[in-house]
Amino acid sequence: MNIEQLEQKIRSLPLRTPSSDLDESLAELFHSENLPTTSVPVQSGSKPVQSGTHRFVWIAASLLAGLVAGFVIGSQQSDGLSAQAGGLSAQAGGQPGGQFAGSGGTGSRGPENQGLTGAAMGAESLEDRRNPTEIASNGASTGVGRDPQTAIFPETGFAEGIPTSIFLEAEKRGIARTAAARAAFWQEKTGESFDVRSHLADGRFDFCRLCHLADGS
């Protein structure tokens, strides 16, 4: 067999095909008006997206919104503000992962706020859909003297605020398409070890469960 024949034989082998998820996310990239330079690239009113990155971003945005709702409610006990925060939570709830908006908020504030946040989330006042970017920015601006990102999951004992800020940064840099990539990025940022197979049983990675729950894996 000469070289050409062998090359021909190699070429005839079917290479593994990338998943349609990659095709779709790249098609989206090639045809999008704006490159993914923001944390939350999806515009309001657009159809729910299925890619890992966007699913993750929605979960992260929802968590932030839920947390802000928890802070506002817990600190000021203001019905007006509750409704406003609830609207934001409910708005996030319209997207994949939004179901976790309330749990993020209540988890960070304790049981006394569960009812309020849950009710706010269930309000589902979706008429006033706004750009999800506003959710995060409004959330930060309506905070009560605390940076929302510094209070995520304090009950886990995990370094407060690291997960979401790191994962959002990963998304910003366009390397957050899968859990594995986010995990690698997290490992790089924190210097801590990460075992893909056992991380769901590891209390430090409670954050990851939300994504797994969202896609049923």
């Binding site: 990338p18 998820d21 398409r177 899968t178």
Partner: peptide, 28 residues
Amino acid sequence: RRSLFALALSIAGSSELAEDAVHDAFVR
């Protein structure tokens, strides 16, 4: 498409990471 994925797969070791690599490269 397939060759790019194969190259990434050959280096990264798993389909998931290879797809990340391809995606990341195009974003950059």
